[in-house]
Deep mutational scan, measured.
Amino acid sequence: EVYKVKIKIERVLPNGEKVEEEITIEVEGMSEEELLALARELAAEPGVRIKEIEIEKLPP
Rank of each mutant, 00 (worst) to 15 (best):
E1W: 15
E1T: 13
E1Q: 12
V2P: 03
V2G: 05
V2K: 14
V2W: 13
Y3R: 02
Y3A: 02
Y3S: 02
Y3L: 04
Y3I: 04
K4N: 04
K4S: 04
K4L: 04
V5T: 01
V5F: 13
V5I: 08
V5H: 00
V5W: 08
K6F: 11
K6R: 13
K6G: 01
K6L: 12
K6I: 12
I7K: 00
I7V: 08
K8P: 00
K8A: 04
I9F: 09
I9T: 03
I9Q: 01
I9R: 03
I9H: 00
I9L: 08
E10I: 11
E10G: 01
R11W: 12
R11S: 01
R11P: 00
R11L: 03
R11K: 07
R11N: 01
R11C: 03
V12P: 02
V12A: 12
V12G: 03
L13Q: 05
L13H: 05
L13I: 03
L13F: 12
L13W: 05
L13M: 09
P14I: 06
N15W: 12
N15A: 03
N15V: 01
G16M: 04
G16H: 03
G16L: 04
E17F: 11
E17N: 11
E17K: 11
K18V: 09
K18D: 02
K18G: 05
K18E: 06
V19P: 01
V19H: 09
V19S: 05
V19W: 07
V19R: 11
V19D: 03
E20R: 04
E20I: 10
E20N: 08
E20D: 12
E21V: 06
E21G: 07
E21C: 09
E21M: 11
E21T: 06
E21P: 01
E22V: 10
E22M: 09
I23H: 05
I23S: 01
I23Q: 02
I23P: 00
I23L: 07
T24E: 09
T24Q: 06
T24F: 11
T24P: 01
T24D: 07
I25Y: 05
E26G: 05
E26P: 02
E26S: 15
E26M: 10
E26L: 11
E26Q: 11
V27W: 09
V27R: 05
V27K: 06
E28T: 13
E28Y: 14
E28V: 07
E28F: 11
E28H: 05
G29I: 04
G29T: 07
G29Y: 08
G29K: 10
G29D: 08
G29C: 04
M30V: 07
M30F: 10
M30A: 07
M30R: 05
M30N: 11
S31D: 08
S31H: 06
S31P: 12
S31K: 10
S31L: 07
E32W: 09
E32C: 05
E33I: 11
E33C: 11
E33Q: 15
E34H: 08
E34F: 15
E34Y: 15
L35C: 06
L35W: 08
L35P: 03
L36K: 06
L36V: 09
L36R: 10
L36N: 05
L36A: 06
L36S: 04
A37E: 04
A37T: 13
A37H: 11
L38Q: 02
L38H: 04
L38C: 05
A39S: 06
A39K: 05
A39N: 01
A39Q: 04
R40Y: 14
R40N: 03
R40C: 02
R40L: 08
E41T: 15
L42K: 04
L42G: 01
L42C: 05
L42Y: 15
L42F: 08
A43Y: 11
A43M: 13
A43I: 13
A43G: 09
A43C: 06
A44G: 12
A44K: 14
A44E: 04
E45F: 14
E45I: 13
E45K: 15
E45H: 12
E45V: 10
E45D: 09
P46W: 15
P46H: 15
P46D: 04
P46A: 11
P46G: 07
G47S: 07
G47N: 10
G47V: 02
G47Y: 04
G47I: 01
V48N: 03
V48I: 09
V48P: 00
R49F: 09
R49E: 11
R49N: 11
I50C: 02
I50E: 00
I50F: 03
I50S: 00
K51G: 02
K51I: 12
K51M: 14
K51D: 02
E52L: 10
E52N: 11
E52P: 00
E52S: 09
I53K: 00
I53N: 00
I53C: 02
I53F: 07
E54F: 13
E54R: 14
E54K: 09
E54Y: 15
I55P: 01
I55W: 09
I55E: 00
E56M: 15
E56G: 07
L58P: 06
L58I: 14
P59S: 14
P59R: 08
P59Q: 10
P59T: 14
P60A: 08
P60L: 04
P60G: 10
